[in-house]
Design a protein around this nucleic acid. Structure first.
Lengths: 131, 131
DNA sequence: AAGACTGTATTATGCATATAATACAGTTAC
DNA sequence: GTAACTGTATTATATGCATAATACAGTCTT
């Protein structure tokens, strides 16, 4: 099975290679990218995302260094989704995504209840308009 | 009264001038930066944040163009926190902060209830460790 | 065996961000 | 009025990110 990138929408503010890495981590956490799954090749993913192959390579190289994937020259790269990695990724993403949101919500003057109400209101939200 | 920047901690991933702008918007939303409040001078804020004066100037110039502040050459810049701005800022920050968090939480496989539980767990969180 | 795919590497260019060092004119405080 | 502050502007340099264009060697498929 191959790790799915079809739901990754690139944001212009954050470096693309970091968004690729974060996407893989989220797919692992969500249980969609399991241990031993294949990564798409650098060239294939660069085409899919309309991005330069070197940008994808930068992401893959860093994931390699983090022990998130294993690459064999000539062959495809493989996901390493062992317990150790999953625990580390969960801590990292909670710290990056959850805590930064809480920080923002508090800075905006939200109480905990108000923050939960906002989640209720926008959880199933799809489009672009907000009110 | 002068807009407070003492609680702004700079993140290395996001451009500094954007973090400055976002901080002002959050202070306005939270009701801390009220209409007519003074901004710290470019030089003073650059010293406070340990950042180049030109970086602060870039943030102030963009806020000027957004109608968020008014500057008079030689004098201090003033916050424009009218109803129109507040509504626009609220929409913008909800879109930027709330929707991006929801998107991340869903990508991590969280249900709405799980997301709320995470908020409960970390809302009052201070330090750096996560479990 | 051959061709098409892999990973990996190098060199060059463009752009945005941030820094550094000045400069000048208007306002404010003493 | 003078000094110390304002906003505003310019030029130069460095860095990170992304792109473009190649190149080479290993693996896989047929």
């Amino acid at each position: 099975m191959v790790v799915d990138f079809s739901k990754l929408e690139l944001n212009k503010l954050i470096p693309i290679y970091l968004q690729i890495i974060r996407h893989v981590k989220m797919e692992i956490l969500a249980g969609n990218a399991q241990d031993g799954f294949e990564m798409p090749s650098r060239r294939v993913l660069s085409t899919l995302l309309s991005v330069n192959p070197n940008t994808v390579q930068k992401a893959y190289k860093q994931m390699e260094e983090e022990g998130l994937i294993i690459s064999y020259p000539g062959s495809k790269s493989i996901v390493v989704a062992n317990e150790e990695n999953i625990i580390r990724i969960r801590q990292e993403l909670i710290s990056d995504e959850v805590l930064s949101f809480i920080k923002s919500a508090r800075a905006m003057g939200f109480t905990l209840d108000q923050a939960k109400n906002v989640l209720d209101k926008y959880w199933d939200y799809k489009g672009k308009e907000v009110d």
